[in-house]
Design a protein around this nucleic acid. Structure first.
Lengths: 367, 367
DNA sequence: TTGAAAGCGCTAACAT
DNA sequence: ATGTTAGCGCTTTCAA
């Protein structure tokens, strides 16, 4: 059986399509309609299983009621449930709540610029969400300049684009502060184990340093294992040998005299920290008795270690929701006709607030 | 600046929109056109940045050139990069290759039946891919009956729907066979640690048993830790206490006289197996010297253990691609007008072929 | 309170 | 070889 059109419902109810259109949308134009007819129409519509043809409505309204999302490559943080999935879930949830559809423009594959601009231009999507866009790439800036409706998630480039970012600095600072509360004063930092680090790694290092300062903790360069930090021990880093780097770092720490060793470690990521911890434990150190540990991102890995790893969590789902809400709201503000292009407002910029997740890998230090 | 329409290009090129339509699609109706005009049109189109309005084309062609995907809840396998992401990536890739768009109907949230049927009905999507649909649910069957274009991935219910499934039985059988090649004859099995197991868990157990039979290995019920197997040791399983179950199983194995212990373990999942392995190692057993291990799904967790866990991998990405290809192909076979509803063909059914990933957790047994 | 009708931008059959 | 035109199904203004 063919699907029902407005016309079919109108015939079944014995009236014109205009009234039907009005009734099923329960608002449009200046049409009103008597209760009996109204009921008749609703019944007919239900009976025929009427649903407005999507393309037709989109054509008429000049809106697709769809937003697009672009995800460069999932799981780049090395292990664990990737943030992308949680963000996507949040985006999808917000879209559904606001009755928008979600178009997955690209995931993992690499054809950003053209595709995105194209979907936008073909009126395929009313707005665009871009995840982890490379700060160096030009296309993001071009989108922003062309006054398209775009919001980036975790973008650290120069383009003046609306965006919402992980609270990277706040997260690592928070880890330090929580450890300080437990009387730790010698706190080490485990940066990226590879030589190709994600863009936000340096921000996390900065947060660590800020956290130390705020807590009145002296930073000891000998225990800050991050290539971006001056005075750090020289560690050989390659593009694949996480394990070797972890072993080197662990042996350096193990070799320190017990009273000079860090009593706690903050990791730039759960994965890096866990690799180092595993080596430390093989060297005979106990977690958390000898050394406490706090990771970053609260990935699935945390709960697969013994003791479970404390971590700082980003509100991925919430960020996705918020981004979607913003882009949709923005889309509805824009005039559909070529009216005034809506004076360029302030750039929208949000930093998410991380949350500390306490677990077995931390213990208080005797005062 | 407003986006260009067919009409704008036609004016710029000084011809009618029909010719433009023909040229930009380089095929349509029985129109031909001289080379000079052709060039002029192409230039004008490029200059104006012309792209066909999506909704308009969809309305006219009665096709959305979009397929929808429904993902109930990601990451249910407990840890590691979830298969859903890889499948999604494959689906997206195939869609792009075939110039289809991908609509993410739902991920993680729970509103399947209505939403899916609706998108289909509103001509929002030309076809639908459903991931991990619950075998008990009715809505999948209803979709199938209504002659909609749907393909399920990893569906084990009764509905006569096109689908492509993980080769679960083949995977666990493969693990056994590979271990047998290494002269293992006492092989244990680690089933789900929780009392709520995924639907395909029992198939994996069956595969294990088949693998044993094929390899001439006697199954010892005392080392088959799966609640579905008669004769298995009684293990207390709850909905959350994986760790306790793992400890119990490990202590049972450790308590066995060394010459009666399994020399190898097959896990129904990487996660379950790793939890048990960790406890075994804490009890003093060495992997792989004392006991070899092969997991399932090749999740990210595998590479986070020492030794790295051998596993059997499902071709997630390829399955996604194949599903998408099928649903698109099917969509293009269907008549757009109400012609003959295309006699119901054979049910399309594919089982994916798993691949063995050898890693440090396996060693040969002395002959 | 209801109906008629003009398009939204595009494709394709039909005319020239 | 090119132009004209009738819709696809819907929204909405205008007329009755």
């Amino acid at each position: 059986m063919k699907r029902a059109r407005l016309k079919d419902v109108a015939e079944a109810a014995g009236c014109s399509i205009a009234v039907v259109s009005h009734v099923v949308n329960n608002a449009s134009g200046n049409i009103t309609c008597g209760e009996p007819l109204r009921q008749k129409i609703l019944r007919a519509a239900a009976e025929l299983g009427y649903t407005a043809h999507y393309a037709s409505r989109a054509l008429k309204k000049q809106r697709s009621f769809t937003i697009g999302i672009y995800i460069p490559a999932p799981g780049n943080r090395g292990g664990g449930l990737n943030p992308e999935t949680a963000i996507l879930e949040g985006v999808e949830r917000a879209c559904r709540e606001l009755s928008y559809d979600l178009l997955l423009i690209s995931i993992g594959n690499g054809t950003p610029a053209g595709e995105c601009a194209n979907k936008l231009n073909a009126r395929r999507v009313d707005g665009l969400i871009v995840l982890h866009a490379d700060g160096d790439s030009e296309w993001v800036g071009q989108l922003a300049d062309s006054d398209k409706n775009v919001v980036a998630i975790n973008y650290f480039g120069p383009a003046q684009i609306d965006c919402i970012n992980f609270g990277n600095a706040a997260a690592s600072a928070m880890a330090v502060v929580e450890l300080a509360k437990l009387n730790h004063v010698k706190i080490g930092y485990i940066g990226p184990l590879r030589d190709t680090a994600p863009e936000d790694a340096s921000i996390r290092l900065r947060g660590f340093l800020e956290g130390c300062e705020a807590s009145g903790i002296a930073v000891d360069p000998a225990m800050v294992f991050d290539a971006d930090f001056s005075g750090t021990p020289r560690i050989e880093r390659t593009d694949s040998g996480d394990q070797e780097a972890a072993e080197t770092i662990a042996s350096i720490i193990t070799a320190m005299p017990p009273d000079q060793r860090p009593t706690a470690l903050v990791g730039h990521s759960d994965a890096s920290l866990l690799l180092v911890l595993r080596e430390l434990m093989r060297n005979g150190l106990r977690v958390p008795q000898d050394i406490s540990a706090v990771g970053m991102d609260d990935s699935d890995l945390c709960r697969f270690f013994l003791p479970e790893l404390a971590s700082v969590k980003q509100p991925f789902l919430g960020m996705g929701e918020e981004a979607a809400r913003h882009v949709i709201e923005e889309s509805e503000m824009r005039p559909v006709k070529g009216a005034a292009p809506l004076a360029k407002r302030q750039r929208w910029l949000r930093i998410s607030e991380p949350e500390f997740i306490a677990r077995g890998s931390i213990a208080a230090r005797d005062g």
